[in-house]
Design a protein around this nucleic acid. Structure first.
Length: 845
RNA sequence: GGGCGCAUAGCUCAGUUGGUCAGAGCGCUGCCUUUACAUGGCAGAUGUCGGGGGUUCGAGUCCCUCUGCGCCCACCA
C-alpha cells in the first residue's frame, strides 16, 4: 500500500492522530504484563492550581520520548498521569477566584453558592464558609483547571495512558495516603509531639523544613543593656528582635569567651520588664557575632530552640497562632513597670511591637545608640508573605533521619540504589539528607487535603487525650474524622466528655504525593497493578524538588517496602527566561505553550524541548522552534519523494556500494541512538538521528535519485529501508509527522512499530561507512561550490572533473561515480593522486 | 561559611574515556525559479573554547588557581 498526498502538510494533523491513538489504544497499559516486561514511569502530577508553562512542556517531553522509545523497544510502558490538586496552593486559588475563606467552625450550608467566579473585586472581604462548603468549592475549581491541563497534555502528544489518571485528592489517593500513614504509625515511624514548630501566622499552619526558604530582609541591630543583679553595671547585647525581650529566658555566651566567663552562673534583669534571667554558656554562641553574648527568647529562631532544649530553659511564649502578642501580661513579668511596659505590646504584631519596644528602650535609656539597619536572611514559608514564627504546637511527624543517624545513613545509602541522570544530582540528595535537622512534619492546619485518619478519646472533662489514639480499620479507608466516627462510638459522642474528637488536621501535600508510585500503581487496591510496576523504572522530575518530592518518596518507600521506589531518577533542567531567570508564575515571566503549539506545531515544540540536555537549564529561545518546524517539514517532503519511486521487487539485493555504505552508516546511528536512549539521553539520540537525516537528504537522496527514477532496485530498497528506519527513530520526538507519513505506506501506528536495530539494516558491522561516503560527499560539495561561485545553476554541466585524492579515496569516489555523475551533471572524470582531497571543476559553456 | 553546576561564534547550545574538536542551528552574506521541499535548496564569513599557571609529544577536553554567573545547604542572636 502506498497512498501519497499530492500536497503534504503539517497543518492540523494533530487532531486526527490524537483521535486515532485514543481509538486504537496505542498507549494503553497491558495489565497482564509481568514486571520484567514493564517500563514504569512515576510521572510528576502537575499542580493544577498553577498553570502549565513552557517549562512543563520541556520536561514532560523529555519523559515522553523515553516512554515512546521503551514502548517501541517492546516494553509494556506504564505511563500514568495525575493531577496534584490537594493542598494549600489550591486553597489559595479557590479563595482568590471565589472570594471565600474557610472557617471550620461554621456549619455546612447546602444552599451555598460562591459569590464570585474569577473576578473578585479588590475591596471584597472574604466570605467565611464551612469546611465542607469550602472543600466542595475546591473540588469544583480544580475540576475545571484539570480540564484545561488535560487539553494541553493531550495537545503535547504525551503518550500517557489516560485510563490511569489519578488526583492527589481523589478517593484512591486518600485511601493510599491514609493507609500508608497508619502503617507508619503502627511501626512507630509516625509520631506526634508537642514542640516548637515553624509556623506561618498568615496561613495559620505549621510548615516543614523542606518548605522553608530564606529571604533577604531589611532589619536592624539594636544594642540593648541588661542589668547585672550584682550591681556591677550592664551587659550589652546586640539583637535584631528587641520585641522579644519580654520572652527572654536567659543570656548565653561561648564557654571559652574570657569576657563573659566571670558572669556564668550570675543573673541579669531584662530592660523594661525587669525579669531576672541567668547568664549561661553554650558552644553555639559565637564570640564574633554582635557583642558575643545573646539573649535567648521563646523563640526568635531555631538556635533559640536548640538552647531552650539543651539548657533546659523555661518556655515564655507570647506570640500566639494569630501572630500577635498575648493580650494579658504574662505571670513571669512581676514588677509594675514591667507590666505597664507590656501593656503597650499586648495584641500587637511583631513588627509593630518592635517599634514600640525600641521607643520605650530609647525613653528609658536602655538602648545604646540608634538602630543600625542591615539586611539579613529570614526564614519564610516558601508560599508565605511574613516571616515564620516559632510556636509550640502538637504536630504529627514521620521519621526521616533528621533525628536518627542510623535512619539517615540508610536513606543516604538508598541513594546508591538509584541511578541519577545526570549523576551529579546525587550530591544534592546527599546534601539535603545529611543536613536535616528534624523529622518530617506532616500535619497541616488546613482544609483541602487528606485528613489525618485519627480520633482522640476525650476525658471526663472533655479534653482530648492525645495519647489515646483511635485508628480506623484499613478496610474503612478513606475516612474523614470530622464526619466519620471511630469504631465503638456514635456520632452523638463527638466532642462530649468521655466521647471522642477527630484530628482536625490534614496531611501535608507532600505526604500524599510522596506516594505517587503507590497511588498510580494501586498499592493494595482493587484492580491495582502494583507488583507489575514497583519499583518503578524512572522518576522524572525537576531538580528543585529533590528535597521534597524525591526525598519524601524515598522515605515512604524505605519505610513501607524496604527498598527504593525507582531505579532511575531523571532530573530535568529549568527553562529560563532570556535574562536567565527561572520561569515561574510568581515572577510573571512565563511563556504559555498553547500559542507556540499552534504556531509551530506540536512536533516543532517537542523538537526544541528534546534538544535540551538532561538536567541542563536552558534559556527559552523561540527561534529554536523554527528548526523543529523545518525538520518536520523536511521529513514530510523527503518521505513523499522517497515513496514516489515505488516499491522494488522484495527480494532484490542492495548491491550498490553507496547504498550499502548509507545503510551501514545508518546502522551506526541506530546503535548510537539506542545506547543514548538506554541512558535516558534523549537529546543525544535525537542529535545523532537528525545529523544523519540531513546528510541523507542533502547528499544521499540527491546522489541516488537519478538511479531511483530509473527503477534501480538497490536504490529503491535502500531508500525505503532508510525511510522506515528514520521514521521510527524520529517517532519518539516527532510523534505526529512520523505517524502521518507512516500512515501513507504502513499499517498501524508508527508508535506501535518496533524500534529499529542495526541488524534490521543488514549492515556489516566492520564496514567503514565514513571511508566510503565522506570522499563522495566532499566531491559533491566541491562541485556545488564551483557552480555557486560561478553563479550558475546547480544543474549546469561539468565538462570535466579532475579529482585529486589518495588511492583509497579515489576507489570510494569511483565506486559511486555513476551517482556523482548524475547528481552533478558531470561529463567526464579524471583522477590524480594527492594527500589532500581536491577537485578541479571545468564547467560547460 | 560549605557543596554543586555553568562560563565555547552576535544568539541558543553540542563537543562521552585528551590526538581532523574548533562544531550545529538561528541570525548574517551571496547564489540558485533544480520536475520532494521557496514554510525551500546550495554555498560563505564569524571564535586568543572566561583569565593565569601546570601535567603531556599533544588540552575546550586532566590538575591547581583566580574571576563572573546560577542553584542547593548552613545556628541568620
Amino acid at each position: 500500500m502506498t497512498n501519497l498526498p499530492d500536497k503534504p502538510s503539517l497543518d492540523g494533523i494533530e487532531a486526527g492522530l490524537m483521535k486515532r491513538w485514543d481509538a486504537e489504544g496505542v498507549y494503553r497499559f497491558d495489565r497482564t504484563a509481568a514486571r520484567e516486561q514493564v517500563f514504569a514511569i512515576d510521572t510528576p502530577p502537575p499542580t493544577v492550581s498553577g498553570s502549565l508553562h513552557i517549562g512543563h512542556v520541556f520536561s514532560y517531553t523529555h519523559t515522553d520520548t523515553v516512554a515512546r522509545f521503551q514502548r517501541m523497544r517492546g516494553k509494556v510502558v506504564f505511563y500514568p498521569i495525575g493531577w496534584d490538586d490537594n493542598g494549600l496552593a489550591t486553597e489559595r486559588r479557590v479563595q482568590n477566584v471565589t472570594g471565600v475563606r474557610c472557617d471550620p467552625s461554621l456549619p455546612f450550608d447546602p444552599d451555598f453558592t460562591a459569590p464570585f467566579h474569577g473576578d473578585v473585586p479588590k475591596d471584597h472581604r472574604a466570605i467565611p464558609v464551612s469546611r465542607p462548603n469550602f472543600v466542595d468549592l475546591c473540588r469544583e475549581i480544580t475540576h475545571l483547571d484539570e480540564q484545561v491541563f488535560e487539553e494541553l497534555i493531550r495537545r503535547l502528544g504525551l503518550s500517557v495512558d489516560w485510563s490511569l489518571l489519578y488526583t492527589t485528592i481523589g478517593e484512591r489517593a486518600r485511601r493510599v495516603s491514609q493507609r500508608a500513614f497508619l502503617r507508619n504509625l503502627a511501626r512507630g515511624e509516625a509520631y506526634q509531639q508537642d514542640a516548637p514548630t515553624l509556623y506561618d501566622i498568615d496561613e495559620r499552619t505549621a510548615v516543614a523544613q523542606a518548605e522553608m526558604e530564606d529571604r533577604e530582609m531589611p532589619g536592624s541591630y539594636h544594642k540593648v543593656a541588661f542589668h547585672r543583679t550584682d550591681g556591677q553595671g550592664d551587659l550589652v547585647i546586640d539583637t535584631t528582635r528587641p520585641e522579644l525581650l519580654p520572652s527572654c529566658v536567659a543570656m548565653v555566651a561561648h564557654p571559652d569567651d574570657p569576657r563573659y566567663q566571670p558572669l556564668f552562673g550570675t543573673t541579669v534583669t531584662t530592660p523594661l520588664f525587669g525579669v531576672e534571667v541567668p547568664v549561661l554558656a553554650h558552644p553555639l554562641a559565637d564570640p564574633d557575632k554582635g557583642t558575643g553574648i545573646a539573649m535567648i527568647c521563646t523563640f526568635g529562631d531555631i538556635t533559640d530552640v536548640t538552647w531552650w532544649r539543651e539548657l533546659n530553659l523555661p518556655s515564655r511564649a507570647l506570640i500566639g497562632f494569630d501572630g500577635r502578642f498575648a493580650t494579658d501580661a504574662p505571670e513571669w513579668i512581676r514588677n509594675d513597670a514591667g507590666r505597664e511596659a507590656y501593656a503597650h505590646l499586648a495584641g500587637l504584631a511583631p513588627k509593630q511591637a518592635q517599634k514600640k519596644v525600641v521607643e520605650m528602650l530609647q525613653a528609658s535609656g536602655e538602648m545604646l545608640g540608634d538602630a543600625r539597619p542591615i539586611t539579613h536572611p529570614v526564614k519564610f514559608y516558601e508560599r508565605g508573605s511574613r516571616p515564620l514564627e516559632i510556636v509550640a504546637t502538637r504536630q504529627w511527624y514521620i521519621r526521616n533521619g533528621g533525628r536518627d543517624d542510623a535512619l539517615r545513613t540508610s536513606l543516604v545509602a538508598r541513594g546508591d540504589e538509584v541511578t541519577w541522570h545526570p549523576p551529579y544530582m546525587r550530591t544534592r540528595y546527599d546534601n539535603w539528607v545529611g543536613g536535616l535537622n528534624g523529622d518530617w512534619l506532616v500535619s497541616r492546619q488546613r482544609f483541602f487535603g487528606v485528613p489525618i485518619p485519627l480520633w482522640y478519646r476525650l476525658d471526663a472533662d472533655g479534653n482530648p487525650m492525645y495519647g489515646d489514639v483511635l485508628v480506623p480499620d484499613e478496610a474503612d479507608l478513606p475516612v474523614d474524622p470530622s464526619t466519620d466516627c471511630p469504631a465503638g462510638f456514635t456520632a452523638d459522642q463527638r466532642g462530649v466528655p468521655g466521647g471522642f474528637m477527630g484530628d482536625p488536621d490534614v496531611m501535608d501535600t507532600w505526604a500524599t504525593s510522596s506516594l505517587t508510585p503507590q497511588i498510580a500503581g494501586g498499592w493494595n487496591e482493587d484492580g491495582g497493578v502494583f507488583d507489575a510496576v514497583f519499583p518503578f523504572d524512572v522518576r522524572p522530575q525537576g531538580h528543585d524538588i529533590i528535597r521534597t518530592w524525591l526525598f519524601s518518596t524515598m522515605v515512604r518507600s524505605h519505610h513501607e517496602h524496604g527498598g527504593v521506589p525507582w531505579r532511575n531518577a531523571a532530573l530535568s533542567g529549568w527553562i529560563l527566561d532570556p535574562d536567565r531567570k527561572k520561569m515561574s508564575k510568581s515572577k510573571g515571566n512565563t511563556v504559555t505553550p498553547m500559542h507556540l503549539l499552534e504556531q509551530y506545531g506540536t512536533d516543532a515544540v517537542r523538537y526544541w524541548a528534546a534538544s535540551g540536555r538532561p538536567g541542563v537549564d536552558t534559556a527559552f529561545d523561540e527561534g529554536q522552534m523554527k528548526i523543529g518546524r523545518k525538520l518536520s517539514l523536511k521529513i514530510l517532503n523527503v518521505s513523499k519523494f522517497v515513496l514516489s519511486f515505488g516499491e522494488a521487487e522484495p527480494d532484490a539485493p542492495v548491491d550498490a556500494p553507496l547504498d550499502q555504505a548509507m545503510l551501514a552508516r545508518l546502522a551506526k546511528v541506530v546503535t548510537g541512538a539506542t545506547t543514548a536512549f538506554d541512558g535516558f539521553d534523549y537529546a543525544r539520540a535525537l542529535e545523532q538521528t537528525e545529523s544523519f537525516f540531513w546528510w541523507f537528504c542533502d547528499d544521499y537522496v540527491e546522489l541516488v535519485k537519478a538511479r531511483a527514477y530509473e527503477g534501480d532496485p538497490s536504490a529503491r530498497i535502500a531508500l525505503r529501508t532508510a525511510l522506515s528506519t528514520l521514521l521510527r527513530s524520529f517517532a519518539p520526538f516527532l510523534p505526529f509527522v512520523t505517524d502521518e507519513v507512516w500512515s501513507w505506506w504502513q499499517p498501524g501506528s508508527v508508535h506501535g512499530a518496533s524500534w529499529p536495530t542495526a541488524a534490521d539494516l543488514g549492515a556489516d558491522a566492520g564496514f567503514d561507512a565514513d571511508a566510503a561516503l565522506d570522499p563522495v560527499s566532499e566531491v559533491l560539495a566541491l562541485v556545488r561550490r564551483a557552480k555557486t561561485e560561478a553563479k550558475v545553476s546547480q544543474r549546469a554541466i561539468v565538462e570535466r572533473l579532475v579529482v585529486r585524492a589518495t588511492p583509497v579515496q579515489q576507489a570510494a569516489i569511483e565506486a559511486a561515480y555513476g551517482d556523482l555523475r548524475d547528481a552533478g551533471s558531470v561529463q567526464s572524470v579524471e583522477y590524480s593522486t594527492a594527500e589532500q582531497l581536491g577537485c578541479e571543476v571545468v564547467l560547460g559553456a
